[in-house]
């Protein structure tokens, strides 16, 4: 009656050991399958859009009406809403990247434990890391596109800046995605997320988000340099305002370095936790 769907000798003899061309992308695809079948994710995207709008209106126009235009280090003066919007965009890229790479990843690693059977396939821990990172970037891009759409609607960014602003957001997402995975492998329980949240909020408040860092006292400026989000904001903001300089490239380089170190550490830690 039922035929056993298993290789017979003929078939296994003619079939060489299958090589998977893009193993990491098979994992990304798993997330896409879940994304498309679960309604909750769409709500998340909608909530994100609403959040972006609320932030831009509240901070930009609300607070902006009180503080007036901001003078940039190069002397140009911009409305407060246009000054703060790119920083909120960079922060949103960070938040999205961390939500995937810390929260979701931790859940899949420690609770659903979906990577254990996946490692019985040709995929290696490195492929899992790359696959999750690609997925994180897709999420960041999705969020950034809707955020930028709101900015365009409100006239907070020129259309010509968009092709540079979006890749900049991806770079911020890459850096935080890689660091987030390192953090996720180090977390012990859900309680530790309070700590992650606190750090995230501190970065949000003190990375030159709301005021130019040049207004901070000297010692604090040094501390701010350690914040990857600061470099993210200093990358996205000049690109959005059309005031990019050589310094902007420097900030991009810092993010590339953070992403690189984070990825190597994440892959190494995953290799250790997954292959015992």
């Amino acid at each position: 009656m039922t035929q056993t769907p298993v290789a017979d000798d003929q078939r296994s003899a003619t079939r060489a050991a299958a090589t998977v061309r893009y193993p990491a992308l098979a994992l990304t695809e798993r997330n896409v399958v879940f994304f498309r079948s679960g309604g909750a994710y769409w709500w998340l995207a909608l909530v994100g859009l609403a959040e972006a709008t609320a932030y831009l209106l509240g901070m930009g126009w609300g607070v902006g009406s009180l503080v007036g235009p901001v003078t940039l280090p190069d002397g140009t003066s911009v409305p407060y809403a246009a000054f703060v919007a790119p920083a909120l965009l960079a922060t949103a890229a960070m938040d999205t990247a961390l939500a995937e790479s810390v929260v979701s990843f931790f859940g899949k690693l420690r609770f659903a434990r979906i990577y254990v059977p996946i490692l019985n396939t040709p995929l290696r821990p490195m492929d899992v890391a790359v696959g999750e990172l690609v997925w994180t970037l897709a999420r960041v891009l999705l969020f950034a596109v809707s955020f930028v759409a709101v900015m365009l609607t409100l006239g907070l960014v020129r259309p010509s800046a968009v092709p540079l602003v979006l890749p900049a957001c991806l770079l911020v997402g890459l850096a935080f995605g890689a660091v987030g995975m390192v953090v996720a492998t180090a977390l012990r329980s859900w309680q530790d997320f309070d700590l992650v949240g606190a750090v995230q909020f501190t970065l949000f408040m003190f990375s030159g988000t709301f005021v130019p860092v040049s207004t901070y006292p000297g010692w604090l400026q040094w501390v701010v340099e350690l914040s990857p989000l600061y470099h993210g904001i200093e990358l996205v903001r000049p690109l959005a305002l059309g005031t990019a300089s050589a310094a902007t490239l420097g900030h991009a380089a810092v993010l590339v370095a953070v992403a690189g170190v984070g990825f190597v550490l994440a892959a190494r830690r995953m290799h250790r936790t997954m292959y015992s």
Binding site: A18, L27, R30, V33, S37, I118, T121
Partner: peptide, 25 residues
């Protein structure tokens, strides 16, 4: 494996199709 470890976020069919994709099928 001893403790199944199926992908709890996916359906039965999706569990099999996504797993097959890990083998490059």
């Amino acid at each position: 494996p001893q403790d199944d470890l199926l992908d709890i976020e996916l359906s039965s069919l999706q569990n099999l199709t996504t797993y097959a994709r890990y083998f490059g099928i």
